[in-house]
Amino acid sequence: MNTGPAAGPEPAGGTAPTGGSAPAVGAVPVDDRPPPAGPAANLIAAAVVVVLGVTAITGSLAFGAGSPSQPGPGTWPLIIGVVLVVLGLALATQARQPGQAERFTRGSLLVVAAVSSMVAYVACIATIGFEIPTFLLAFVWLKFLGKESWRLSILTSLGIVVAFYALFVGALDVTIPHLF
């Protein structure tokens, strides 16, 4: 039976006081997932599923549901819609159980920032070529999302642009809008 490290203090986030009873500092759980979401989040997810199912059903009825012997364009979406509604209701009944859903944390703001940066990237790339937006996106991700140092952020971002240029414009000769 595996019992983990045999000897020595746990090198992972634990503290090992050698004698004495002073409180350990900074014991961080080894793998710290965001806390599980409450039943509200599960219910919302279930509701979305049900709504999707209902949309599918109404849409398919509009196309013409057909019949078992004469399947029409709406037959299959109708089946899927019904299945979705059933699954959504089943999910709703399970909403109280601690599921696999995670709560949004402060880290989720990073995701929002990341997506915004990508949207901005898409907005610029057609007009000013890919070099500058690539540099900026890389820099933002490194410096602000990743909290890396100035030196690393700037140098790495430059390196990425150069590498991309060499690869996409140079070697692969892809038709990507570029300034230089």
Binding site: P9, P11, A12, G13, G14, T15, A16, P17, T18, G19, G20, A22, A24, V25, G26, A27, V28, K147
Partner: peptide
Amino acid sequence: QLHLHTSAHT
């Protein structure tokens, strides 16, 4: 008396 703090930081 030695205490250890070995968790990673960002």
